[in-house]
């Protein structure tokens, strides 16, 4: 997947959860991605964050660093 597309998709997820009151948005974002993103998509997201996470919403970066399950 192109990095732009992946960034766009991840930021869309962040846009939803960061507007939810009284929740840990980063944890929710990570949970959603863990539930619905296939391992190679998560791997690409990990790599992108390690490479600086250009274009990613700060909540996504936090989610990846904190709660994203590393693909098996």
């Amino acid at each position: 997947m192109s990095p732009d597309k992946m960034t766009h998709m991840a930021n869309q997820i962040a846009a939803f959860f960061k507007t939810q009151p009284h929740v840990d948005a980063a944890a929710e974002i990570a949970a959603h991605i863990n539930d619905f993103w296939e391992p190679r998509m998560r791997a690409q997201l990990f790599d992108h964050v390690r490479a600086g996470g250009a274009g990613l919403d700060p909540f996504v970066i936090e989610a990846v660093e904190k709660d994203l399950v590393a693909p098996a």
Partner: peptide, 13 residues
């Protein structure tokens, strides 16, 4: 135990 690819993800992959 891991989720699989959705249709658009299959095409990207």
């Amino acid at each position: 135990p891991e989720p699989g690819l959705r249709i658009p993800n299959m095409l990207d992959a």
